[in-house]
Design a protein around this nucleic acid. Structure first.
Lengths: 206, 206
DNA sequence: GCTTGGCTGTGAAAAAATTAACAATGTTAA
DNA sequence: TTAACATTGTTAATTTTTTCACAGCCAAGC
């Protein structure tokens, strides 16, 4: 891993990893760049370029070994470290994420969820125990939580985000439609479903 | 609207529109490019460049008029036409989207939802009536549905997508973790929550 | 009335991302 | 053995996106 790998490349590597996992289950052993690229909705050139980043080498005649490539990407993305993630705010979105991630086979484990509603605290939601936000710090240590899915109402999102940061969480998947103010060493991915739908709707009419 | 406006610019315009709507409610009248950019998490230069696309002009001393700019973006994005959208597949994700969009004030109306589960068909879910997929074509005409939020299991996503296309839907927000095969005049936005979480988790450790 | 100052609009420059192109490779088939 | 072929890895070219930088503007202060 020589120089800076772009965020887009990282995102695509995550996607390749997932697809390779599916292929492995279905018993395929090798795959050509254009085949894998097609499954990812990308071009072969781009895929090969991305794979340069992880330092894996395919064969000009067989293509890529599924297991080998998957392993290389995994090592590159995960390293030795493997913390977990948590859902913060168990409303509609939070619950949907918990249910979805329970089904999907992801390398990122969601080990806990947090809410302030006493009716939820202590219950198990889609296999995940719900804790009070007051316990955030303690549970982050207990479960080695390094990233969070922030799905609280917009009005309290900034406050909760600061709490996350103070608990040493350095990655936030933010569903609240506001721009979080966080230190620059904290990575924030904003997911604004209303805005995305609007974009899709725009292009539906083009 | 002279030449080609990029997808990224469209996405940002949608975001500006939303922020301007909030500002309008809070009674602000004008705003400078750097202020609006900051709320969007972008640079002032980029915002000004985006605004070139919609053909609105601010004042060097007052900045942008909230109402005027919002109107220009709205006209640019929506034109005269205003179809609606629908949720297809009312599982956990589908329900969460319905609940979320019911709260959020979006210019895109979700007028119907579809499922194949007889227990859901006929019921009203978060204010939205649920129809059988067999009625898709009829209801698309009735409600002028132009885009869809596809939240069905991966196994049937391709089949359902083809049905959407045959009903003249030209924009799909796809939550199924597969690459949909659709004609090139159909816009697809893939939302892969598991992959996105993995990316966030990666950067949380950098 | 003049000057100052901060902002917009935009061409030009820079940076980033994607695509093209091709030498090197190694397997297959004749 | 040798020729043909499809694919990889990688450099170079291209395209796209972002940022810079500054002329022009207009209100405010003197």
């Amino acid at each position: 891993m020589p120089d800076q790998i772009s965020e887009k490349t990282i995102a695509r590597l995550c996607l390749y990893k997932r697809i390779l996992g599916e292929l492995e289950v279905s018993g395929v052993e090798t795959i050509y760049s254009h085949e894998l690229a097609s499954r990812a909705g990308l071009t072969a050139a781009q895929l090969r370029r991305d794979i340069m980043a992880v330092g894996y080498f395919g064969s000009p005649t067989k293509g890529y070994e599924i297991a080998g490539l998957q392993h290389s990407i995994r090592v590159f993305l995960e390293g030795k470290n493997t913390g977990t993630s948590a859902v913060v705010g168990v409303g509609n979105i939070g619950r949907a994420i918990l249910a979805y991630m329970g089904l999907e086979t992801s390398s990122v484990h969601i080990t806990a969820c947090f809410d302030q509603d006493p009716a939820k605290i202590g219950s198990v939601i889609y296999g995940c125990r719900c804790y009070s936000l007051d316990e955030l710090s303690y549970r982050c240590n207990q479960y080695n939580i390094q990233s969070a899915i922030l799905a609280v109402p917009a009005g309290v999102a900034q406050l909760v985000a600061e709490k996350l940061v103070s608990c040493n969480i350095r990655g936030i998947m933010n569903f609240a439609p506001i721009q979080l103010q966080v230190p620059e060493n904290v990575f924030v991915e904003n997911i604004n479903l209303a805005v995305t739908l609007e974009k899709v709707h725009y292009f539906a009419r083009k």
